[in-house]
Design a binder for these strands. Structure first.
Lengths: 138, 138
DNA sequence: GTTGTTGCAAAGAATTTGCAACATA
DNA sequence: TATGTTGCAAATTCTTTGCAACAAC
């Protein structure tokens, strides 16, 4: 038996590799849009995966804390999307919720510069672009 | 009687200039941090202003729609802050919730460039910096 | 075997809606 | 006066918590 990569990644983050967590992580990895806890729970249930809503909430939260997921606020609810580890920004389609990751050194530079000018101690920043992706605007 | 500027501004936006709306608008104009509907309601009540929580919610929402306020998401709840009309970004202090508006042509340029590259039809963007302001990090 | 995790039911919190009384234009 | 607005109470919706059964290590 070879090393189980997803399970290993979870353990490295101090999380036990339970069936539910692997399911959620896999589901998120398989999609390129963002999804809410409620919606994901419904999808998994409909796909025959036995998992509780509470667990979906806790799992998404834990995975986001561990850096596996990015979070978005969508009119009052939290949506999550799988992300690569390093810092990046987003191109968000408002029609299909697809999210493209983009890196932007220009923005990083801009952040440092502005912050320095105002004596601001930066803890984080976000620079996201919203609109319609090529498919949806076609 | 001279023209009442705040009342006039409301009417221009298609909103009746009620005591409650003027109160909310004034309260927001007087502060440089962002505040939630719940908190603002409590403050106004404590200041002796008779206003219902429902009205605070509806008023903040209407004022934001009309472009008088910017909205922020603060861990599950919406916060509002008075803003100037033209497009800008924010420097947000996580300790005192103070918000400084900043303009950034660099960011505007970056947005256009990225969007064009990917065939994205931009409807909006945000570029906010979070951290501790000079006062709070001192 | 320990300890972290799950999931149900219940609680909690923010926000919205129905509707009759009321204020603005 | 006609229509938009208010505010209470009730309803909704998202999210969290208590706790006993259970699974991972």
């Amino acid at each position: 038996m070879v090393t189980d990569a997803p399970a290993h990644a979870l353990r490295e983050a101090g999380l036990r590799a339970t069936r539910q967590r692997l399911t959620v992580l896999e589901a998120l990895r398989a999609r390129e849009d963002s999804i809410t806890a409620q919606d994901l729970h419904m999808e998994l249930r409909q796909a025959g995966e036995p998992i509780g809503l509470t667990t979906v909430y806790r799992t998404l939260s834990a995975l986001a804390d561990a850096g596996f997921l990015d979070t978005f606020e969508r009119e009052g609810e939290l949506a999550f999307r799988h992300c690569s580890v390093d810092h990046h920004h987003h191109l968000v389609c408002e029609a299909c919720n697809k999210v493209e990751e983009i890196t932007a050194e220009e923005v990083e530079r801009w952040v440092q510069e502005i912050a320095q000018t105002r004596g601001f101690a930066v803890t984080g920043h976000r620079a996201d672009i919203f609109g319609l992706c090529a498919d949806c605007s076609a």
